[in-house]
Design a protein around this nucleic acid. Structure first.
Length: 280
DNA sequence: AGTCTATCCTGCCGGC
DNA sequence: TGCCGGCAGGATAGAC
């Protein structure tokens, strides 16, 4: 469930169940899921109380409080197939679990991950992972003026640029395709050729698409991304282009095409999103 | 600087 | 029916 809306939804689902709880014991079935040494990680988080849960980009952060030299934050990145669920400890461990944090209220916070790309890590006061991240799309620092200036500073295809977390933090393949279609920009458009008006429109669209997706608790269209106890998410019903190749564009009726841009499957309406060839 | 390839992994789907 | 290649919502390192 890996883009901003899905990460936000996961964080909101888990937050009330873990904040205030103390981590008593850590288990792990796949050492590579935990950054560094699993034992060191366990020592850093065991005995710590979770005081807050929040999100930055596609990271979920649990703030920790406890022994002076232990970690201050625990970070989770879901990558492609990571999930977090909280269940009674005495219940059987869920399929595909990689890390289990047994809490002091008889529940366990499980990190599940079919493809094993996800990561769990402990950090002291500073979080170097956040140093190079771009702005949060839903924050006020991200607006049309900022976007236009930043696009002008680069000469890069729009799609890979919007996927670049150091440029803008939180978008992934689906929401980039949806946002570009909504403003009629082709994914290969050179960023320096985007007008101020287009940038302003795009900033608004990105905010709207993400906010609506969060409202609908993200999108899930296969069983991997469904939480057993939570809602599956329903934003996929709103998709205009993603996964709709071969079908008619809802706006103009033209057949949606799928191409590859920056090694990622990319969905585009050839009529709504024309690619203007550059002329010198 | 930007783009591409390979890599980390498993499951599922479509085609033969 | 069964096998197999290709593909997947992410991100990185290293080569051109």
């Amino acid at each position: 469930m890996p883009e901003l809306p899905e990460v936000e939804t996961t964080m909101r689902l888990v937050r009330p169940l873990v904040v205030g709880r103390t981590i008593q014991r850590v288990e792990c079935t796949w050492p590579r899921t935990v950054e560094g040494d699993v034992k060191a990680f366990a020592r850093a988080v065991q005995g710590q109380r979770i005081t807050q849960a929040w999100r930055r980009a596609k990271w979920i952060v649990l703030d920790l409080e406890g022994p002076a030299r232990a970690a201050r934050h625990m970070l989770v990145h879901l990558r492609m197939t990571g999930r977090l669920v909280v269940e009674p400890t005495r219940q059987a461990a869920p399929a595909w679990w990689k890390v289990g944090l047994h809490l002091d209220d008889g529940h366990t916070l499980w990190f599940l991950d079919v493809r094993k790309f996800g990561r769990v890590l402990a950090r002291s006061a500073s979080i170097p992972e956040f140093a190079d991240l771009g702005p949060e799309p839903l924050s006020s620092t991200f607006d049309g003026a900022w976007l236009h200036t930043s696009l002008q500073a680069r000469r890069r295809a729009m799609k890979p640029l919007l996927l670049d977390q150091t440029f803008l933090a939180g978008l992934g393949n689906i929401y980039v395709d949806e946002s570009l279609h909504a403003v009629g920009l082709h994914p290969l458009t050179n960023s320096a050729r985007v007008s101020l008006q287009q940038a302003q429109e795009l900033a608004l669209v990105i905010k709207r698409v993400l906010a609506e997706a969060i409202e609908r608790e993200g999108s899930s269209f296969d069983s991997f991304y469904r939480t057993p106890e939570g809602n599956p998410g329903s934003y996929q019903a709103q998709f205009q282009v993603y996964g709709r190749d071969g079908q008619a564009c809802r706006r103009c009726g033209t057949t949606i095409k799928k191409l590859v841009v920056g090694q990622r499957g990319t969905h585009v309406c050839p009529r709504c999103q024309p690619l203007r060839q550059k002329r010198n």
